[in-house]
Amino acid sequence: MTTTSLRILVNGEPQRVASPATVGTLVALRRPRPPFAVEVNRRLVRRAEYESTPLAEGDCVEIVTLVGGG
């Protein structure tokens, strides 16, 4: 039996996640250090929407935080 997986891009780098997956699955997998924010295909995904936002093949995910800047 083969498990299907999705190929997505996270912060510009390819990553595979087991299908089906949501933003919540990905966050649980990567455990980014809080605080952070996530967008999928250039659209912000709010925290309350993580579990209800499915990931699809080829999705571009960005996980960002605050850094020093002017």
Binding site: N11, R33, E62, V64, T65, L66, G68, G70
Partner: peptide, 10 residues
């Protein structure tokens, strides 16, 4: 203070 938003690896 101003800050920037960047991919979480810095």
């Amino acid at each position: 203070v101003t800050v920037a938003v960047r991919r979480e690896r810095l």
